[in-house]
């Protein structure tokens, strides 16, 4: 099998030389680190890398905001693509101007992310491996085995570490509101740390419930190591079970929370 990096360089090179795109968004190695990079010519592609997993959807949004008519190639993992789909539903990005280069994740990556779909809809590079259910995760299981009081104590302990840096919100590709309720003093008192966690954490969890695509960037951004995705993974599973709906799957599918019961019926959720 061809080296995935080589294969991506080839595809990106073809898009660039064929004039189909003005640039390709991916990752490059620079100054001893890896970060997002806009490749403009075939020659630049020698610095292109694929690891580690790095969120590109937000970068894509920034570029499109600046160059609305630019045509962009983007190297996407499953979660990048799902993020772009949820963003497109809310007019944050224009999918029509994007050429996606699909990269399948490895099994190890899928397990680390507790990812149900570790691949984009079209795989250009890599082998498709089966996804895992979030509830396979030991920590998620442990939480489910606990009673309400134990869970309350667990989250109280975790959330009391919050320094209200807003990193989770800022890193999140689907947290897109221009006026965020978490900065509204009616809900979250200014100048108080940790924030009243019901107001801050519960509300954020509810707000992302129908759009979280499970990229894990919130938790990765959290300087206090609060296991946010443990909660969000369960919320995503619940949305899946209640509405037979998965965020990021289909740009034409509206959130089940804004449709009628005829359009998206409410299903029974099984015992956990």
């Amino acid at each position: 099998m061809q080296d995935p990096v080589q294969r991506v360089r080839e595809i990106a090179g073809q898009l660039l030389t064929g004039g189909q795109v003005d640039g390709v968004l991916g990752l490059c190695e620079q100054h001893g680190g890896v970060g997002p990079c806009l490749f403009r010519g075939e020659d630049d592609l020698s610095s292109l890398v694929l690891e580690p997993k790095y969120p590109l959807a937000n970068v894509c949004k920034l570029i499109q905001a600046r160059y609305p008519n630019g045509r962009l190639g983007v190297i996407v993992r499953g979660c990048d693509e799902r993020a772009l789909i949820e963003m497109a539903k809310r007019e944050q990005v224009d999918l029509d101007k994007l050429a996606l280069i699909g990269l399948a994740c490895t099994e190890a990556q899928a397990v680390e992310c507790r990812c149900r779909h570790p691949y984009p809809q079209r795989i250009d590079v890599g082998e498709r491996v089966e996804g895992v259910a979030p509830t396979v995760d030991e920590n998620v299981r442990k939480l489910l085995e606990q009673g309400f009081n134990e869970r309350l104590a667990f989250w109280h302990h975790e959330f009391s570490k919050c320094i209200k840096c807003y990193g989770c919100r800022n890193a999140c590709p689907v947290c897109i509101c221009e006026e965020c309720i978490l900065e509204d003093e009616l809900w979250v008192q200014p100048g108080v740390v940790p924030p009243d966690y019901a107001a801050f954490q519960f509300i954020r969890a509810y707000h992302i419930s129908d759009k979280c695509i499970g990229c894990g960037e919130c938790e990765a951004a959290c300087p206090m190591d609060i296991p946010l995705t443990r909660l969000y993974a369960l919320v995503r599973e619940t949305v899946r079970e209640l509405f037979d709906y998965e965020a990021g799957a289909d740009v034409a599918a509206p959130s089940p929370l804004v449709t009628t019961l005829e359009e998206t019926p409410l299903l029974e959720v099984g015992e956990r």
Binding site: L143, F148, N149, E150, R151, L152, A153, F154, W155, H156, F202, A205, Y206, S209, L231, L234, V235, T238, V239, L242, F243, P256, L257, L261, T264, L266, V269
Partner: peptide
Amino acid sequence: KRFALLKEMLGYLG
């Protein structure tokens, strides 16, 4: 719909 979801969430949070 929204309260069916919120109920489950409240449970996860204790």
